[in-house]
Amino acid sequence: MSVEPDSTGDDSGADPAESDTEIDAPGDTEISTADTMRERADESALKLWLLLKANRLHITGVLAVVVFCTFVAVGSSVDGFVATLQSGDTKGALFSTMLGAIITGTTLVVTISQVVISQENGPLGDQHQRMSNTMDFREYVGDMYDEPVPVDPSAFLREHVNAVQRGAKALRDAVAGSDDEDLRTEVDQFTDSVIGNADAVRDQLDGATFGTFEVLFAALNFNYAWKIFQVERIGSDHESAIDDEIDDRLTDLRTTLSMFGPAREHIKTLYFQWALVDLSQYIIYASVPALVVTGSLLAFTGSGPIPGTTLGIENVLWVVGAGFTVSLVPFLLLVAYITRIGVVAKRTLAIGPLILRDSQR
């Protein structure tokens, strides 16, 4: 499952019910754009919920049920399937193959986990540089806030969105006395869009806990890239009407918006690392029962047929289908987690005001 990349420097992943409306300024210039992923990518709410918002363990469970039901349904409807499955060689080949796949897959996932963890390791000089970069960024963005920089990721992003909102209001106040009516109209429409988007994102971040997808999901809904472009365009189109105060407010707002980019990317990177470590742990946990079940079935069902029926379905279909499904759980976990990570990565390929999606041009 894949989704085309959206306007990436900034892509949206919020509740499909919340979106900006497109407003036309003088000269038919679009001041605001839709801020949700569904509106920007023209995808159904259900598809994006399954790809991003839904609990990954629940998705894994649903996939497992689908695999099991499909196996039983196909086995019941295809002539000769049960007879072939009753062969000891067939069951033995199936489960021995799955046994090798589980061991290989688990080893691969452990390797991925080691790669992720290795990024956190390094000599003292590297660790000092990482710390210095982090503190420098906190000090820089701290000048934009009214309070110390929060340490909680959700509160940190929420405070940054507040700073953007304050910058938008300051720009609107500075332009209020301008003689250029077009400038006042465009800035009013633009700041209304920024403030509305900031309010929605702040509500989504409120109570969101890092480690879940909620923090990143809300951050993706803040369409900062389009806003940077609009600040630059307003400054260029109305250069003759912009005095020093308005220019300062535009510069401040552009800087604050620009700092949201690396802040969000940092949170995204941390989430990816967190999710990959979780994935590695879940696959290891799932591999143990999968190995036990697959090995047991290989030992006890490989030598002969499984007689009898239950609920009108041959028992061999129930047993082999259940064993096959359990052996696939580690792989289904990988599918569920990597699908979300892949969609987010594809929608945030670039940082800043770049548009990669044709529909957004």
Rank of each mutant, 00 (worst) to 15 (best):
A25K: 01
L63P: 11
V292E: 11
L297Q: 02
Q230P: 11
L276A: 05
T294E: 09
E120M: 07
G88W: 09
T256L: 00
Q127W: 02
F272E: 13
W318S: 03
A17W: 03
Q129V: 09
L108T: 08
S240L: 07
R254F: 04
F156A: 14
A163D: 03
E147L: 05
Y224C: 00
L333G: 13
T348I: 01
E186D: 14
F137K: 15
L48C: 09
D143I: 04
S193K: 09
Q230T: 13
A336S: 03
T191R: 05
D278N: 12
A41Q: 11
A225E: 11
A14D: 15
I338T: 12
F71C: 10
D152W: 01
G323T: 09
R347I: 07
T33S: 12
T212N: 06
G261Y: 02
L334R: 06
A93W: 00
F300T: 14
A198C: 13
E22L: 09
G211C: 01
M131R: 12
G122D: 03
I103R: 08
A208C: 05
I234Q: 10
F68L: 15
T325L: 07
T251R: 10
L63S: 14
R38Q: 14
N121S: 12
S19E: 01
A17R: 08
G323D: 10
V66K: 01
P148A: 10
V65S: 08
A93I: 12
M98P: 00
G13F: 04
D89R: 02
L328F: 01
P148S: 10
F229L: 15
L291K: 06
G13R: 02
V116P: 05
L48V: 06
A64V: 10
V201T: 01
E232S: 15
V329Q: 07
G75S: 01
V187A: 02
D173V: 05
D79Q: 10
V67L: 04
S132T: 11
Q129A: 12
S178P: 04
L46T: 00
A290M: 07
D28F: 12
S296G: 13
L183A: 02
Y282E: 08
D42K: 13
T84R: 08
T97L: 06
V141D: 06
L270Y: 00
D79T: 05
Q281E: 06
V288G: 11
A83H: 08
F229E: 15
L317N: 07
N162F: 09
D179T: 06
I31A: 01
T134Q: 08
T90W: 04
R357L: 03
H160L: 04
T107G: 15
T33P: 01
R172G: 13
T21G: 15
L157A: 09
D79M: 03
I103T: 11
V201C: 12
V343M: 11
F260P: 02
R254A: 15
C69Y: 09
P307W: 04
F300C: 08
E232R: 15
N221S: 15
